[in-house]
Nucleic acid binder design. Sequence first.
RNA 1: UCCUCAGUAGCUCAGUGGUAGAGCGGUCGACUGUUAAUCGACUGGUCGCAAGUUCGAAUCUUGCCUGGGGAGCCA
Length: 468
Amino acid sequence: MTQPTQSSVFRISQVLRSGEPDTTVIIRGWVRTKREQKTFTFIEVNDGSSMAGLQVVVSDAIAGYAQSIKRINTGASVEIEGKLVPSPGKGQRLEMQAIALVVHGEADPETYPLQKKRHSFEFLRDIGHLRSRTNTLSAVFRVRNACAAAVHQFFQERGFLWVHTPILTASDCEGAGEMFSVTRFDLNKLPIKEGKVDFGQDFFGKPTYLTVSGQLEAEIMAMAFSDVYTFGPTFRAENSNTSRHLAEFWMVEPEMAFCDLKGDMDLAEAFLKYVFKHVMENCQEDMEFFQQRIDDSVLDTANNIINSEFARVTYTEAIDLLEKSNKSFEYPVAWGIDMQSEHERWLAEEYFKKPVIVTNYPTGIKAFYMRLDDGGKTVSAMDILAPKIGEIIGGSQREERLDVLESRIRAQGLDPEIYWWYLDLRRYGTVPHAGFGLGFERLVQFMTGMANIRDVIPFPRTPMNVEF
RNA sequence: UCCUCAGUAGCUCAGUGGUAGAGCGGUCGACUGUUAAUCGACUGGUCGCAAGUUCGAAUCUUGCCUGGGGAGCCA
């Protein structure tokens, strides 16, 4: 840090990392704790830039001491100019001797809900507007940010184009889940025509929804730019109440022209390794916090991801392993079943003990756009199963053959007319291509060891919850 | 949506038919280069909501609401 002629404002992370004794700086933030002594007061200030806060020593010699200290409690916002000095106490290299102190906002300790002790995540969800001021949630959101940066960095370095696929869509394709309707109608006065709602009078003239996936649009863009990715919010109106599902979540969906299933798997594995490495290098302090306080396997998991190759098995081999496991599963194992959570968990957590890529699933249990393998019994799909999280990535080589795609759409009872533009991509200049979808919050969960997905997104949307 | 557990002070919980409890927090005081400081005192309640059984219900019954865990669906 260079010595400014006048005091400059610094983020606390910067002060802690490279602040030099005898320099004078200004910091701003929120008070975590106050410890009053006889002739001075310790306050710990955090501005969200790091796990650790800065210890500020406020002497009763400074102007307005008594009045200011009275107004400072846990949660109060302050701006402090002070001199950095080596700390005689344990726990920090530097501390600040306050010269001038401004209290921007008080936090009445009688009503401020955050205490200087551990709170349950359930309670913190009820105060979603304040929970980011806690150690754990702020660490989560710093790691989330690092993950997002790594996503872009990874794809940009490889020449992928970030494409913005629409949030509003009329295609209720692929049956990825229940969709949220979007309308301008007054729901108490719906226009009815021949006993049904007349969507011809609505904003878009047809039923419209929030997107459940940007994949089909990403395929359009891949047919022009070769390698693209989407990274944005998606919506599922499923009434699912689990620690792994949200109604609004972020998805990363790369799509690559001239690419087969193997290339897809290679990219997915390289991608996960890259993001983990980036976070380990940039969020060391936060990752150590998760290791100590949340899940003591987090660092091992990260290193394992970065340094070891993922297991790769076909669905058929996976079923074989499950059958030979001698483990009594609640749901019986047989070729053709859609694997249950218990099966996926056994593979990832007990057998391989690391992420495992399962490929070539039975045709009957996968979507129509996945490429039919020779023989027709399986499709070129792949799922990456992660310990504790389950399915973190789902992808496939797409069906690029017009006639095969058309017959598969029909076989699933769908109308090829609706997919006219999707089929056109196979009609004009079709190429083998592949892609995958990654649930961003599940990635953050996997990274941090956080048990509940509602605690890795700032404002979780789940059934009956849109308060913040 | 299904299964299951829970809901009592601001928070975390104890209390299984007979006067509503603890720790933490908060307030006040003491002490102290402290680190979730320490010590003492004080403060604090529509026992989720509604009905029922009972002389009497936090406690038993029924319904509903909310939350956790698991399942399904998926990412």
